[in-house]
């Protein structure tokens, strides 16, 4: 493990970083209150796990080492221990509160990651591999900001990444099922789609990972040194969009509201039917929907099969 006292260890070979997003990809958003319920134990998204697998494969091919990094609270250590168990050489967490500045468009996160890496390794990464979308419903712009900040090439939507003789080659998905082969110069930031499963680490790695100390760089230290960069506009927590309904006719707002809510409509009496066959049941259902205006009227004679 790396020391947390700020000393930069010797750094042989390229630094290959798997940048993992700590977010619950299955977080539930209440449609009414927009309250987000996330599980801190959710682990990395499929794309991020794929990014880690690519980083694990690329590091030895480039003669470097693989470092898994994330930004998050102490719960995010689970994510990094998984990375260690899978074979990451080192990990680093930039300690950040669960709820960060909603106006962060990804630039602050990118700056914090790079500052944290510089703090521990004394250098910028040579290759950063990320998942190709924001599992936390963020802007998805963090990789771009990472690339901008270290002056790296950026490749997006990658289906595969490999390295040979120190050169990174990638396969990119294009529209219409086309593919594009890229030669990516280092330093680079590559965003990958979830095409690979993360390897299962050997038991000894899992045991070591559970006992390992995760180096931490405080958020204030990492993000505080971020210089103002390109701002892409404020990003807010995810909110479901309001449903648009056409206003019904009415002389005034009150009447339209009453019409819209059905306040003046006498509710139909409940009717219980006992059809003998599925076909008869289907007919009854369709007739009911037609009566209520949800469906067009029944086709006339000769329009085809009876409904």
């Amino acid at each position: 493990m790396q020391p947390t006292d700020g000393t930069a260890p010797a750094s042989p070979g390229p630094l290959v970083v798997a940048a993992l997003s700590w977010a619950d990809p299955r977080a539930v958003v209440d449609p009414l209150s927009a309250e987000v319920t996330a599980d801190a134990r959710a682990g990395a998204s499929a794309a991020d796990r794929c990014a880690l697998e690519h980083a694990l494969r690329l590091a030895p091919l480039l003669g470097g080492r693989c470092v898994a990094v994330t930004v998050g609270p102490a719960d995010a250590d689970l994510l990094l221990r998984d990375a260690l168990a899978a074979g990451a050489d080192e990990v680093l967490r930039v300690d950040a509160p669960v709820v960060r500045d909603p106006a962060d468009d990804g630039d602050t996160t990118a700056a914090a990651l790079l500052t944290g890496l510089a703090r521990v390794y004394g250098r910028a990464p040579d290759l950063v591999v990320c998942g190709d979308h924001s599992a936390g419903r963020g802007t998805g712009a963090t990789p771009a900001f990472l690339a901008a900040r270290i002056g790296a090439a950026q490749a997006l939507g990658l289906l595969g990444v490999s390295a040979c003789d120190g050169v990174v080659r990638a396969l990119r998905r294009l529209d219409g099922g086309r593919r594009e082969r890229l030669t990516v110069p280092l330093p680079a930031v590559c965003s990958v789609e979830p095409t690979l499963a993360l390897r299962r680490g050997p038991l000894a790695s899992v045991l070591r990972a559970q006992r390992a100390e995760v180096p931490v760089v405080p958020w204030e230290e990492a993000a505080g040194s971020a210089r103002p960069g390109v701002r892409a506009g404020a990003a807010r927590p995810y909110r479901p969009r309001a449903r648009l309904l056409a206003a019904p006719p009415g002389p005034d707002a009150r009447a339209r509201l009453r019409e819209l809510t059905g306040a003046d409509v006498r509710p139909a009496a409940r009717r219980v039917v006992f059809p003998d066959t599925p076909a008869e049941a289907a007919d009854l259902l369709i007739r009911h929907l037609v009566e209520r205006g949800y469906l067009e009227g029944p086709p006339g004679p000769g329009d085809g099969e009876s409904f």
Binding site: D82, A85, R200, P202, L203, V206, L207, Q210, R211
Partner: peptide
């Protein structure tokens, strides 16, 4: 020490049949 995401797939035994551990679905497990 917690060992997550790991399935114990069987028992290890010594020559006398005594249980001496478990095998898992991890490599070198």
């Amino acid at each position: 020490v917690l060992v997550p995401s790991t399935v114990a797939t069987g028992l290890l035994r010594d020559a006398r049949g005594r249980v001496t551990g478990v095998s898992t679905d991890r490599p070198d497990g």
